[in-house]
Design a protein around this nucleic acid. Structure first.
Length: 725
DNA sequence: CACTGATATATTTTT
DNA sequence: TATATCAGTG
């Protein structure tokens, strides 16, 4: 424990406003924290202050972050400030909801060992419901229906109240799907992400004594990224904070970038209306970026309507201008980026390349590989979303929760057991008519009218799962996983496949086993249920590619970059229809969100910012040429410098998007695509190989490549996912 | 029931 | 481009 003097000393590293934000512990407090204004620092110090001043005990604080990563980071920082870290409730809304529901969801007719399904499973379930309702996918687009349902849930509308409000024909049909979807979830004892919030609120509504319990426990509540909360989260906070009203929310309306997901910016704009006694603190001093960068970002975001008036300032100098580059196509753009990184004598880890869509990373990656630059790619397919991992998880989920029809259906024929569509139909019908779970129905497959041969297979599967279930108690998660991949023949099946892909799957499974082991060691006898919860909620942005410790260039979407900072930032693909994205062009509100996204991107940069675009790029197979992004035009000309060194070119006229590079410059970036016999190459599907022969067919270069794993293949160099090693 | 190849189709961001 | 779905065959 610190003495009062220690605390004051600790607070000396904060500025006056920050100190104010930390020390105003009682009553509602709104902290408007601009980008780079030391927000995280304020939050962690506030928590440390509360505890060290003896205002409350660690478990009386609830701190909500937007991502698991942010929660982790906050915990780590607090570990340095406090000696008693682990009792704090620091988590995302969803994790907090899951934790509460784990102890009390039986009040809502679910069991405590519920499973959490991810977006993919959600979509499959929606499709299943649509099929059962005989609804045409072309009219009732599954993704669309899912997003309607998800949106409803985030606005605390469950299937019952949605049905009441459904007015037109379409909504009525959606309502039917909603009801069926929810029924299936409940039968399987599964929750989706939205349920974690919706059901927590419901629980509190139906069991006031429970709400009361938590209200008493959480004397101090902090919510980070408040601008990105949705209605369900807003209500949840409001309920919990009602008793003590010691609610501190931190946010920046200019950085609200999740409205597409139901975040409601009004939550922050109207905080003062909800809590009239609230105090507001503005953190406007930016400690991160040089002035030019800040100015450029400001001049873009100021065009948004309905923002809270504010302007960041910095003590730093103007710094360099914002660099601009226009490439001929996306490869030239990528080559420019890589070239700049190489010619700067800076460390790789100081660079970040940000883009609007994950698809843009491919070209970039290609060039980075070719130029031998270590990099990390964030996003894309996440570890726990890989097919093989989801399969193993489905086994675990089923073992942990035998009601889970969703998981059962996923793995009953994985690896192949000869239990196909027809058989499943019979089983499902039987289960439905008897009102039992699918797992139960397996036991009675004879009554379901299934022939003896297949029945044998079903029995085998049943006993296999049953065996896991019975042993589950005595085994660690790692042991259970190992037993599953052995006994089900999952590994054998992969082995038998013998392809490069199968081998990489086995690698991933190995990695999963060690993740399970890690859990067993650190989790101190925590249950399988706990493991599954953790895995379901952790996004764990995966790091793909060369992982030379931390010395690598970071590539990620603009969304993923929120909360991070880098010395040098590239924002690429600044073109109309890409950024701003085409889906946002019709609606001014969506356009504002794109603009905020741009703002977030710019303010990640400390010392240097590059903005690039390409005049032509292939979109989804098709070549398209785009106008340069309107965001570029919104930046005052005097803040812009030309990366190509050509200062005479006119800036920002979209009509006149003539080459901004001189021809010689352009040629510098032109690709020297040469393949020769003997080159070692890497193919996405077939792995490493060696070029045996080169030739030309029409306009395309044809390569004959020998792959040790799969034999010799003839490949079109222009199209194949091929890289030099 | 499993596999193949052809065709269509949509293509953002994440807990 | 990458994936999903479908029809046809083994």
């Amino acid at each position: 424990m610190f003495s009062r003097l220690d605390i004051e000393e600790q607070l000396n590293c904060l500025n006056g406003v920050q100190k104010d934000a930390v020390c105003t512990t009682e009553g509602p407090l709104l902290i408007l924290a601009g980008a780079g204004s030391g927000k995280t620092r304020v939050l962690t110090y506030r928590i440390a202050y509360l505890i060290n001043m003896g205002e409350c005990l660690p478990d009386e604080i609830l701190a909500i972050t937007f991502t698991n990563k942010a929660a982790e980071e906050m915990k780590n920082r607090l570990r340095e400030l406090l000696h008693i870290p682990d009792k704090l409730w620091i988590s995302t809304f969803h994790a907090a909801g899951a934790r509460i529901l784990r102890s009390a969801i039986n009040n809502l007719g679910y069991e405590r060992n519920f499973n959490i399904i991810d977006t993919q499973d959600q979509l499959n379930l929606i499709k299943e419901c649509l099929r059962e309702q005989n609804l045409d996918f072309d009219i009732y687009h599954p993704r669309k229906v899912l997003s309607i349902i998800s949106k409803a849930k985030n606005e605390l509308e469950d299937e019952v109240s949605y049905e009441k409000n459904a007015r037109d024909f379409f909504a009525c049909k959606v309502s039917d799907v909603f009801i069926l979807y929810q029924k299936k979830l409940k039968e399987s004892n599964c929750l989706d992400f939205d349920d974690l919030l919706l059901l927590t609120v419901k629980l509190f509504q139906e069991k006031p004594e429970l709400l009361n319990y938590y209200q008493n426990q959480f004397r101090y509540i902090l919510v980070d990224e408040y601008q990105d909360t949705n209605m369900a989260q807003y209500v949840l906070v409001k309920m919990l904070a009602e008793k003590y009203r010691n609610l501190c929310v931190v946010g920046d309306d200019d950085q609200s970038i999740y409205q597409f997901r139901g975040a409601d910016i009004r939550n922050i704009l109207e905080f003062e209306k909800d809590y009239p006694e609230a105090k507001t603190v503005k953190l406007e001093e930016n400690y991160r970026s040089q002035r030019n960068i800040l100015e450029a970002a400001f001049h873009v975001v100021k065009n948004n309507s309905g923002r809270k008036e504010k302007r960041l300032w910095t003590r730093k100098s103007d710094g360099e201008k914002v660099y601009y580059f226009c490439g001929r196509d996306e490869r030239e753009e990528a080559r420019f980026v890589v070239d700049e990184i190489k010619s700067n004598q800076d460390k790789f880890e100081n660079f970040a390349v940000l883009y609007r869509t994950n698809a843009q990373s491919r070209v970039l990656e290609e060039i980075l590989v070719r130029e031998n630059i270590p990099y990390s790619l964030y996003g894309g397919i996440r570890f726990y979303e890989r097919m093989e991992i989801k399969d193993i998880l489905a086994y675990l989920k089923l073992v942990d929760n035998l009601n889970d029809n969703i998981s059962l259906k996923r793995i009953i024929n994985v690896p192949r057991r000869g239990i196909g569509k027809k058989t499943m139909e019979k089983l499902e019908n039987y289960a439905l008519s008897e009102g039992i779970t699918l797992f139960k129905a397996l036991q009675e497959s004879e009554k379901a009218g299934i022939s003896a041969g297949i029945r044998k297979k079903i029995d085998e599967f049943y006993h296999c799962i049953n065996n896991f279930y019975n042993m589950g108690e005595f085994l660690s998660v790692q042991e259970l996983v190992e037993k599953i991949i052995e006994d089900t023949g999952y590994l054998d099946a992969l082995e038998a496949e013998g392809t490069f892909e199968a081998r990489s799957r086995m690698e991933n499974i190995k990695e999963f086993v060690s993740a399970a082991q890690e859990f067993d060691v650190s989790g101190e006898g925590k249950s399988l249920t706990y493991f599954l919860t953790e895995v379901s909620l952790v996004s764990s942005m995966e790091v793909i590619g060369e992982t030379e410790e931390d010395k690598r260039v970071f590539c990620m979407t603009l969304h993923a970059a929120k909360g991070l900072e880098f010395s040098v930032v590239f924002i690429i693909g600044l073109e109309e229809t890409l950024f701003p994205h085409s889906f946002s062009l019709e609606n001014p509100e969506d356009l504002d969100e794109e603009r905020r996204l741009f703002y977030v991107g710019c303010t990640r940069a400390m010392n240097r910012l590059y903005l690039t675009h390409a005049r032509e790029r292939s979109f989804y197979g098709r070549r398209t040429s785009n106008l340069s992004s309107r965001f570029l035009e919104e930046i005052p000309e005097e803040l812009i410098g030309f990366a190509s060194g050509d200062k005479d070119k006119e800036w920002g006229k979209r009509e006149g998007a003539e080459p901004l590079l001189k021809k010689e410059d352009t040629e510098r970036f032109l690709e020297n695509e040469s393949w020769s016999v003997g080159d070692n190459v890497y193919h996405k599907k077939w792995g490493n190989g060696i070029i045996k022969k080169t030739g030309v067919s029409g306009e395309d270069q044809v390569l004959t490549v020998q792959f040790p794993e799969v034999g010799t293949k003839v490949i079109m160099a222009t199209y194949a996912p091929l890289k030099k090693v």
